[in-house]
Design a protein around this nucleic acid. Structure first.
Lengths: 195, 195
DNA sequence: ATTCATACCACACATCTGTGTGGTATGTCA
DNA sequence: TGACATACCACACAGATGTGTGGTATGAAT
């Protein structure tokens, strides 16, 4: 039930166009592969739909939607037992869906972390944290907040009914959430890039 | 030369649709704002183009392109000075280029980190490290290696001409690089996902 | 031998879509 | 006062676009 080489090529073309921001029309796909009939393209689209790689929105132009299956994925290796090559299929624990993580349906931004106040949680200076903008969060969430006109990363914690912004470093102090300390968003991912 | 409230609304609608993968047609925009004429929408598109927020591709359906000014990519915020809104343009330090980081030209895989041997370098248990497969690396690189049929993350370090695999945790021992310990790849990124 | 998926083609057709050409009304700035 | 931007409307039209209905040929599976 996998894709043929040709179907793979067509899917790759669609993916490229979708990532560029404008899904192709049937005739643009036909032109790319020198098909002289729109019917040929429809055969491909139907095949890709049947195999679960795309969704088709009827009567709408350029309305080809990629499913998760068709998105860019990188394998995640879990435990690697003795004697087996590292990249063997058996080691694949899951797939990391890049498009899904960075899909911009929500208001996201990165914040470069200053200082070492979250070092106990493995968030180091100069790390990037991906932040979903939202005005509130739950206890134990890692949040980006503004405290007296300074933006920092902290842990939101409920202590006997009162909310506090706590660092993960004992050299810094715990601050109550009040009118001078406001939540900007929730940290959903931390990323550190090496050279 | 900034946008009016109405123009801002129209741009936000276009941005939302573009992010969802399908830019709107002129008539879809008209429907959203209950305009009874396509000409009205064109006035808005012309205004947005003139002010540098969108590009219009002639004769193509749905061909509205957002410029950088309309912020298509995810911004990286650096220092946020007092009194300025967090998401203000002045705070944008750079833009995060997803395609560059995850370009699949090289053989990449993620490894889920087991254990706390790299906790001193901010790599925690269950973190994902993005690994570029390669048989050798430079001193101080963080590498994935196979030691006696076990795969772990270590720091490669040159000590007086000899190479060692060192943990970032004093509870673990330093291991010389030899025929029983082999480099699998280099860690280029560490990612931690919160719920 | 028959069914099915693949891999193409030709052509017609309704409607979607961008574009063009007009119009009215309001407010701002010089 | 005149020029200009904003904020709408009406309607026509060519061409873009998805869809429908046919067709041929090849190869694998039953």
């Amino acid at each position: 039930m996998d894709l043929t080489d040709k179907q793979q090529e067509v899917l790759m073309f669609i993916r490229k166009k979708v990532r560029e921001g404008l899904p192709p029309t049937i005739r643009e796909i036909a032109a790319e592969f020198s098909f002289s009939s729109t019917g040929t393209v429809r055969d491909y689209l139907k095949a890709l739909f049947r195999k679960g790689y795309i969704l088709l929105n009827e009567k709408k132009s350029r309305a080809i939607e990629l499913t998760e299956k068709a998105m860019l994925t990188i394998p995640i290796l879990g435990s690697v037992p003795a004697g087996v090559p590292v990249l063997a299929v058996e080691n694949v624990e899951d797939y990391f869906n890049v498009d899904k993580l960075f899909s911009q349906k929500e208001e996201l931004f990165f914040l470069r972390v200053r200082g070492d106040s979250m070092i106990g949680a493995g968030i180091m200076p100069d790390d990037l944290v991906l932040v979903k903008k939202q005005p509130c969060a739950q206890s134990e969430d890692i949040v980006v907040c503004r405290i007296d006109d300074e933006v920092t990363v902290k842990i939101l914690r409920n202590r006997e009914g009162r909310l506090f912004l706590e660092p993960a470093n004992k050299n810094y102090s715990i601050i109550p959430l009040n009118e001078n300390s406001q939540i900007v968003g929730k940290v959903i991912t931390a990323i550190r890039r090496y050279v």
